[in-house]
């Protein structure tokens, strides 16, 4: 079983002192909660689990350990591994400071919101997992379990195309209604592995890039700026949308940007490997420039 193998690997790494911290998941409040776990002692490994509720992308926590003297081990699903690639490409963490334990991911499940345990097989996949095309880690030092078969993915641009068909006024009304709900908690930004600025421009107080009033213009400004800032770097882990307490369809914006980039610069999937640089991070003589 995967959980047993994870524990064995983590125990081995910690006992041999090869890593200082292992980042994984443990069970949370209810049977349908699994939550990030940080362990530094071999005797803690029994807390580690892998089940259908380990939705959290753990890669971003590597930023908290980038100054650690020891290596940090992190469990990575397909999306998490792409996030690590992105952090490596941005020179946010160095490859020799991380130890990646890959876990092929069968897809995570929606929490049913009832304390009584239910048949997990009957629960629907998380929206973010329905759209996932990379269930197997693209980068790892060791793999736990067997790769899961590639699956047919729902057309990830379907929602974007539907929106593109609307008039400008309809689009504005749609997004206006959405952003009006935003409470500016910044969960989307803080969970995002592409949002790895040491200091976010919206936290730079005094500069007042963004007012603190909670109203439509300010939330639009925030959300659109964020979407543009992760352009070409969004690995489509869907964490922003999953954690949004107000249920905003944030991935529709991100996918619109991805779709536009694909059309302008050719198909590109962020974080698939270390060598393909993001389209906005490279320069080619034949880059289109009609928008300039």
């Amino acid at each position: 079983m995967i959980t047993e193998q994870m524990r064995a690997i983590a125990k081995d790494l910690l006992e041999k002192g090869e890593v200082g911290t292992v980042i994984g998941w443990e069970k949370g409040t209810f049977w349908y909660n699994s939550t990030p776990l940080f362990i530094s002692k071999p005797e803690q490994v029994d807390k580690l689990v892998f089940d259908e509720f380990c939705a959290n992308n753990l890669a971003k926590y590597l930023l908290d350990f980038k100054l650690a003297e020891t290596k940090t081990a992190v469990f990575v699903k397909g999306c998490d591994a792409r996030a690590v690639n992105r952090l490596l490409q941005d020179n946010q963490v160095s490859r020799d400071k991380v130890y990646l334990i890959g876990i092929p991911c069968p897809g995570m499940k929606e929490a049913p919101k009832t304390a009584q345990p239910q048949d997990i097989a009957g629960l629907p996949l998380l929206t973010k997992c329905k759209m996932c095309a990379t269930p197997n880690p693209v980068l790892f030092d060791v793999m736990v379990g067997d790769p899961v078969p590639d699956k047919k993915v729902a057309d990830r641009f379907a929602a974007v195309e539907a929106l593109e068909g609307k008039s400008a006024d309809e689009k504005y009304a749609y997004w206006g209604k959405m952003f009006e709900k935003c409470i500016r908690c910044y969960a989307c930004r803080n969970v995002c592995p592409a949002c790895n600025c040491r200091e976010c421009c919206f936290d730079a107080n005094g500069l007042n890039w963004l007012g603190k009033q909670n109203n439509l213009p300010e939330t639009q400004m925030f959300s659109m700026t964020r979407a543009m800032h992760v352009a070409g770097r969004c690995i489509e882990c869907g964490e922003c949308e999953r954690v949004c307490p107000m249920g905003l369809p944030i991935m529709e914006i991100n996918r619109k940007v991805i779709k536009d980039l694909n059309e302008l610069f050719g198909p590109y999937d962020a974080g698939m490997n270390l060598d393909d640089r993001p389209p906005l991070g490279t320069y080619k003589l034949d880059d289109p420039e009609k928008f300039m």
Binding site: T35, D64, I183, C185, A187
Partner: peptide, 9 residues
Amino acid sequence: AKKCLGCGA
């Protein structure tokens, strides 16, 4: 605090 993302949700 380790797992806290520092958001305001």
